[in-house]
């Protein structure tokens, strides 16, 4: 893990003054000592979270895990069925279809959202823009809108029967576009809506990070005549890297579990073409009182997310070291 921001020394042509002492050796030395010396302090610091984690996550999750080995229906007894649920799941084509659709959705929604949120954050922080006070509110509002309302708004826009976009297209002499009954178009609408509603969250993370970049770096770079883009690339991006990492990680975890928005927009339709994983779990499991099966599917989802998270953490560590 990185222990301090990277001074942008690797920036070509930019000579940023470092601290008086060389950093790396010092840092390493601290690490070695830190590894074993402190037990009490970190334990105290994480204690409340640890307590909450055990009480409100481990306890119920273990119950759920036990359910996944049973044919529990939500009431009465929970007969043990071994790995049956997992086997059934891995043989279900609909599960793979939902998984692939979820991966496509995530692969599109995450970069779009991250780019937009970084862009809006930069625009809100930079001195180049005018009218920030309104923009700040406008970018923020979509995040407050509940999925059911988002659903009706986006149907007003992209409803294929009487939506605004199709109305404009037809008025201009075009053909109606099947925004809802074409699987890919339908997914695109959901991706756009998801980016629209989730930008603010990431944007605020980026704003806090951008405000946190030491000004001296920019001042030094300016003295060296670096352009805005060079400064952004060589100072800003490295300095906010820890935040970018967490934004990407949280966005992936969030979008992999997307359900409420897609349910409100197109119910995973047309048909089952855009059923994402959590909706699959819902439909096949909870709504049909197959709590055991739903639990098994959920733990498979958790395993997938865990792998994604660990891979990202690893990659991040490699990049930083």
């Amino acid at each position: 893990m990185v222990d301090s921001i990277h001074p942008p020394a690797e920036a070509p042509g930019i000579d940023v003054r470092r601290g008086p002492e060389p950093m790396r050796p010092r840092q390493r030395g601290w690490r070695l000592r830190g590894r074993n010396r402190y037990v009490g302090a970190p334990l105290v610091l994480i204690s409340i979270n640890l307590l909450l984690f055990v009480t409100f996550f481990v306890w119920p999750a273990v119950t759920g895990l036990i359910y996944s080995f049973t044919s529990y229906t939500g009431v009465g007894t929970a007969p043990y069925v071994g790995l049956d649920n997992y086997q059934r799941l891995l043989q279900d084509e609909a599960f793979y279809a939902a998984l692939i659709r979820t991966l496509i959705f995530t692969a599109c929604a995450v970069p779009l959202t991250v780019l937009l949120s970084l862009g809006t954050a930069v625009l809100l922080v930079t001195s180049y823009t005018k009218g920030k006070s309104l923009a700040r509110v406008v970018f923020f509002l979509p995040w407050l809108i509940s999925p059911i309302i988002a659903g009706v708004i986006w149907r007003w826009m992209f409803g294929e029967n009487f939506g605004l976009v199709n109305y404009l297209i037809v008025s201009l002499g075009g053909e109606e576009v099947p925004w809802q009954s074409n699987a890919n178009l339908s997914l695109i609408v959901v991706i756009v809506a998801a980016a629209w509603s989730y930008t603010a969250f990431n944007m605020l993370l980026f704003v806090a990070a951008l405000k946190n970049v030491p000004t001296v770096y920019y001042e030094a770079a300016s003295l060296d005549g670096a352009g805005s883009w060079a400064k952004f690339r060589n100072i800003t991006l490295p300095a906010i890297a820890p935040t970018t990492f967490i934004v990407v990680l949280l966005s992936v975890l969030h979008f992999m579990k997307e359900y409420a928005l897609i349910r409100a927009l197109n119910e995973g339709g047309p048909g089952t073409a855009n059923n994402l994983l959590v909706q699959y779990i819902f439909k096949m499991g909870f709504e049909r009182a197959q709590v055991g099966y739903a639990s098994a599917a959920s733990f498979v989802l958790m395993l997938i997310l865990m792998i994604v998270a660990v891979v990202q953490l690893r990659m991040n560590r490699r990049k930083e070291s």
């Binding site: 970190p42 610091l45 994480i46 959590v278 989802l301 958790m302």
Partner: peptide
Amino acid sequence: KYHSWWVKAFMICVLATTMLPAEVI
């Protein structure tokens, strides 16, 4: 700021709390 193995393990644990659909638990 602390690098004991159990602190790192707990980091994964905290992440895990977001990984189950709310309905399951």
